[in-house]
């Protein structure tokens, strides 16, 4: 069966869109981290700078899985590995 180039590119675009669903996870995770950090600052305002840096570190690590999805999407869109 023969597929033409446009069909493959269209499917790549759909695949890239599906890959970016991975963005949901880090969104929820970072939101939870930020919410708990806000609660922690409310309990102990003196430790604000420590809490903020810990929160940012944790969020940056939690972001990783979303970035993997982004990477897959970019590879599908711009490197076009599926084209013959």
């Amino acid at each position: 069966m023969e597929f033409n180039e446009n069909f493959i590119l269209g499917c790549s675009a759909i695949g890239a869109g599906l890959a970016l669903i991975a963005g949901i996870g880090p969104g929820i995770g970072q939101g939870i981290a930020a919410g708990h950090a806000a609660a922690a600052v409310g309990r102990n305002p003196g430790a604000k700078s420590d809490i903020t840096s810990t929160m940012l570190l944790g969020q940056a690590v939690a972001e990783t899985t979303g970035l993997y999805g982004l990477l897959i999407g970019m590879i599908l869109l711009f490197v076009k590995p599926l084209l013959p």
Partner: peptide, 16 residues
Amino acid sequence: ISLSLRLFANVLSGTV
């Protein structure tokens, strides 16, 4: 792999 991909993907997404 995860260390390098994290840095790479973050900076690349900004560049894009």
